[in-house]
């Protein structure tokens, strides 16, 4: 039913058409909202489905080996026995070396970019450091294999072996042949790779410290270092830790860069100069060679372990960074 009324300006208005239009627009809005909602839900689904599919794919390995899958260091593809301790150990050790290098260097870079450098230099240098994050990991790996490994083999490893290899207690860590490839090389390359991630978070959070706080400390006669150590760092502590965990998450899951230089060895060795393996490198190297269901399942199970560990680390990182965002009142 169509009733014609007249609006204020004397223009005829078809109320029924207006209602029909409003109804159709409401429907369109609901449809659009539903579409966007399902896209957002897909993000959640991808992550949980990835976890579930790997748990399912790795169930054969988990059932067969139980806890031995994690704690046994015997990885025997021919005999069909898979214990992942060597890759797990390699992942942890190479990431630890990476963090030992990356944390102080990133802090230094953040310090330089917020307090030391003249203002005109901060932009270009910051952009250059961030460029490191843009280089694909396969390039790191290839550069590592062809440029960095020869240097390690010819000068760095022999020096370490001669000077640190015979120390009491820590000696076995640094004693080994000058192969060039190995845990130490992989750790150093990982360290270089995560520097831009950690330093850019640190720089960004250092900038959020209210100027009044810093100026008060300067007015009391503090040096730049004292301001950073006693004012800036305590103020940004949780976010700085968040940035470090973010870098750790990257280091744990990095694949290509370490696959090139780790040496793909399943022999457990105390020395950092010896070839080793990591979870991601094992999967990358052996996945297409896996000829039995148990082998394949073990590799997918490894992927599940990696996923769980990085998820926890990255979750901690985000929670710590989230605290800072809230403190700023954003």
């Amino acid at each position: 039913m169509s009733s014609l009324t007249t609006a204020a300006g004397g223009i005829p208005v078809d109320e029924a058409r207006i209602h029909a239009r409003a109804a159709s627009e409401t429907r369109q809005d609901a449809f659009f909202r539903g579409l966007l909602f399902s896209a957002a839900a897909l993000v959640l689904i991808v992550l949980s489905a990835a976890a579930a599919s790997m748990l399912w794919g790795g169930r054969l390995a988990f059932q067969t080996f139980g806890w031995n899958f994690i704690f046994s260091d015997e990885w025997d593809a021919v005999g069909g026995h898979f214990g992942a301790w060597v890759p797990i150990y390699g992942t942890l050790v190479s990431s630890a070396i990476a963090m030992i290098i990356a944390i102080p260097v990133s802090f230094g870079i953040a310090l330089f970019l917020t307090e030391i450098a003249p203002t005109w230099l901060r932009g270009p240098v910051g952009a250059a450091i961030e460029l490191l994050a843009g280089i694909p990991s396969i390039i790191y790996g290839m550069w590592g294999l062809f440029s960095f490994v020869p240097l390690m083999a010819s000068s760095v490893n022999p020096w370490i072996d001669a000077h640190l290899g015979y120390l009491p207690f820590v000696g076995p860590l640094f004693h080994g042949p000058p192969l060039g490839i190995g845990m130490l090389t992989a750790g150093i390359i990982l360290g270089i790779m995560v520097i831009p991630f950690i330093s850019s978070v640190m720089r960004d959070v250092f900038r959020t410290v209210p100027a009044a706080l810093k100026e008060s400390a300067y007015a009391l006669g503090s040096t730049t270092w004292e301001v950073v150590w006693n004012v800036v760092l305590p103020y940004t502590r949780s976010a700085v830790l968040g940035g470090i965990f973010l870098g750790l998450g990257r280091a744990l899951g990095e694949t290509m860069a370490v696959t090139f230089v780790l040496g793909n060895s399943h022999q457990l060795s105390a020395s950092l100069l010896m070839p080793g393996n990591s979870i991601a490198a094992t999967i990358a190297n052996e996945f297409t060679e896996a000829d039995s269901d148990l082998y394949l399942s073990s590799l997918i199970g490894l992927g599940f372990l990696l996923f769980v560990v990085t998820f926890i680390v990255l979750a901690i990182a985000r929670l710590m960074l989230y605290n800072l965002a809230r403190k700023e009142g954003r």
């Binding site: 993000v43 999967i283 996945f287 997918i300 990085t310 990255l314």
Partner: peptide, 25 residues
């Protein structure tokens, strides 16, 4: 916030893990 959180994790998650997921999928 949950979706944002999950998305941030996906952003830094190891890409090899996504490869494994797509392999099974």
């Amino acid at each position: 916030e949950t979706i944002r959180f999950v998305n941030d994790i996906l952003l830094s998650a190891p890409s090899i893990v996504l490869g494994l997921f797509v392999y099974t999928l």
